[in-house]
Amino acid sequence: MNELHIPNGYYQLWKMYLLSQGLDYQHLDSIAPYISQLDHVLSQPIDSQSPYTFFNTVMQATQQELNCPNLVFEMAELIRPEHFGVLGYMATRSNSVAEALQYIMKFSRLVIDGVDITPMQLSYVGDEFYLTWPMHDAKYALVNELTTACMAHLAKQIFPASLVLNCMKFAHAQQMARFHYEKFFGCKIEFEHSEYAFVLNSASLDVKSALADPSLMQLLLKQAEDAIASKPRIENIEQQLHLHIAQYLKQYAQAPKIEQIADELYTSVRTLQRQLAEADSSFKKVLEIERMKRIEQLLLQPLSLLDIALQLGYSDQSALARAYKSYTGQTLLQRRKALKLLSSDL
């Protein structure tokens, strides 16, 4: 599956929005060329998936005809659990915010799927927690905005008045007037950030849901596990590994172990090793490549070579120097000098 796929629930949400405005998609001029394909998609189960490229085309045409730049936010106001399929119901019936996030991270492929997707990660900074994911391409700006908006609004329904968003960070550039973002999310907004992130108080993780249903959750969990098991394996496991290791090195300032990355990819160490071997690669090889890339970034920072070595999991400065010289043919001091010259020229 090379193309990004989204839930058909997004198409149903789009149709629901038009109906709320007294409009029928079959009578919109801009949608006329796509009626046949839309009829087919809308006839499919709400929890099945369809290509994102077509959805993006439909959304852009709708925005232009209705002169509605904030269409994603208008649609998100109508979100219901079923638009996210079984994962939406699982979030609704979770006991707490922490449990809901656990399921979202584990079963995200049931909503948006494809080689370019990296599961969301949870991290802590002081008394805040961050739910983050990287940007793979600016062409996915619309689906990222719609998904974040739908998640935020659904969370308000599940945990009313208890869940306060401190900040919403977007990795892409601003797509509409800032007013629309601030009005919808009700918090500080940042654009062109290093990654996407929901930022909330850590205490929010313990917020309980009045809709929790442990018995129903067991049935939903089994359904989600079966759905994940039936999905085709994402072939480019090496690309996924590169993304996860790069993010780990940046976030934790230490080298990950294969067990940690396997957990993030929701697979076993043995399966991960087998998949990498089939791709003529290995965890050690990918880790070393990402270490070398990270060195380039760290050399521009006021860090000693020993600090850089320790951040990347080398025993000492000498081990780092030998690895870098073997990989690039340059010494660390030569590269640091060259990078500083490049930086001063910009």
Score class of each variant (00 low, 15 high):
245 I>S: 07
245 I>F: 01
246 A>P: 13
247 Q>C: 09
247 Q>F: 00
248 Y>A: 07
249 L>T: 00
249 L>N: 08
251 Q>I: 05
251 Q>N: 14
252 Y>S: 05
252 Y>Q: 09
254 Q>I: 03
255 A>R: 00
255 A>I: 01
256 P>M: 06
257 K>S: 10
258 I>L: 14
258 I>K: 01
260 Q>R: 05
260 Q>Y: 02
260 Q>N: 05
260 Q>T: 14
261 I>Y: 03
262 A>H: 02
263 D>S: 10
263 D>C: 09
263 D>W: 02
263 D>R: 08
263 D>A: 13
265 L>K: 02
265 L>I: 05
265 L>N: 04
266 Y>D: 15
266 Y>R: 15
266 Y>C: 14
267 T>K: 03
267 T>Q: 09
268 S>F: 05
268 S>E: 14
268 S>M: 05
269 V>Y: 00
272 L>S: 04
273 Q>S: 07
273 Q>A: 00
274 R>I: 03
275 Q>A: 08
276 L>S: 05
277 A>V: 08
277 A>D: 08
278 E>C: 00
278 E>M: 08
278 E>S: 12
278 E>Y: 08
279 A>Q: 15
281 S>M: 04
281 S>Y: 06
282 S>I: 06
282 S>L: 01
282 S>Y: 05
284 K>Q: 13
285 K>T: 06
286 V>P: 12
286 V>G: 02
287 L>W: 01
287 L>A: 03
287 L>N: 02
287 L>F: 04
287 L>H: 00
288 E>G: 05
288 E>A: 06
288 E>D: 12
289 I>P: 05
290 E>H: 04
290 E>L: 03
290 E>V: 00
291 R>N: 04
291 R>P: 12
293 K>P: 02
294 R>S: 14
294 R>Y: 06
297 Q>V: 09
299 L>Y: 11
300 L>V: 05
301 Q>G: 09
301 Q>W: 10
302 P>I: 07
302 P>C: 12
302 P>Y: 10
303 L>P: 15
303 L>E: 13
305 L>Y: 15
306 L>M: 09
306 L>E: 11
306 L>N: 09
307 D>Y: 09
307 D>G: 00
308 I>F: 04
308 I>S: 05
308 I>K: 00
309 A>E: 04
309 A>G: 11
311 Q>H: 13
311 Q>C: 10
311 Q>S: 10
